[in-house]
């Protein structure tokens, strides 16, 4: 049974933002998280997205609300967890992260200047970990593994099931390896760090 960090704080709503640029799989990361909570765990989840007119390279963000009750207002009121995969996205959204919230950045893509002292902050070399698997493309899933490990908002087994039914056929194993790699990195460097 997963211990939800936000639940422990007496809340039954978690608000999460994944952001970066188009083409990184930002929306897919949000989709898998929402699907794991809503379909596998039977909770409520609302995923919204914002992006510009271009399909690749532009700013891109996926916002996920997870709740035990029906969700009315569909956008984030605040961020409990921020997963940033580009410098621009980090700069845009870091201000909305709640005190005590969790920041996860891609180590080589985001430079954290003037780090906030009131949050838990992690930098993950997701691109390099993905490259070790032979596909830089799965960096979003590596990030998702790490996110699952340190945030504990969704059970890792639910996430694995959601990944299997969401990624292109034939890439399930690669994506599960990516998830496990990110999760293991979290166990090693995140949970107590």
């Amino acid at each position: 049974m997963v211990q939800r960090v936000m639940k422990a704080a007496g809340r039954d709503v978690q608000e999460i933002r994944f952001c970066g640029f188009g083409g990184q799989g930002v929306i897919l990361a949000g989709y898998i998280t929402g699907k794991a909570a809503a379909i596998i765990e039977g909770r409520h989840a609302t995923l919204t997205r914002s992006f510009g007119p271009e399909s690749r390279g532009g700013a891109c963000s996926a916002a996920v609300i997870l709740a035990d009750q029906r969700i009315a207002y569909p956008f984030l009121h605040k961020q409990d967890v921020l997963v940033a995969m580009s410098q621009a996205a980090y700069v845009e959204h870091i201000g909305q992260l709640v005190p005590g919230g969790i920041l996860i950045t891609e180590k080589d893509l985001v430079t954290v200047e003037n780090p906030r002292q009131d949050i838990r902050s992690y930098a993950v070399p997701a691109t390099r970990l993905a490259e070790e698997l032979g596909r830089k493309l799965v960096l979003n899933i590596v990030m998702l593994g790490f996110f699952t490990c340190v945030s504990r908002v969704v059970d890792p087994e639910s996430m694995r099931k959601a990944i299997q039914s969401s990624v292109p056929a034939g890439t399930e194993d690669l994506n599960l390896q990516a998830f496990n790699k990110g999760y293991a990195f979290g166990l090693e460097h995140g949970v107590n760090g």
Binding site: Y31, A38, I39, H44, A45, T46, L47, T48, P74
Partner: peptide, 9 residues
Amino acid sequence: ETIGHMTEK
């Protein structure tokens, strides 16, 4: 657009 691009169960 909000409803069309919103994902839920």
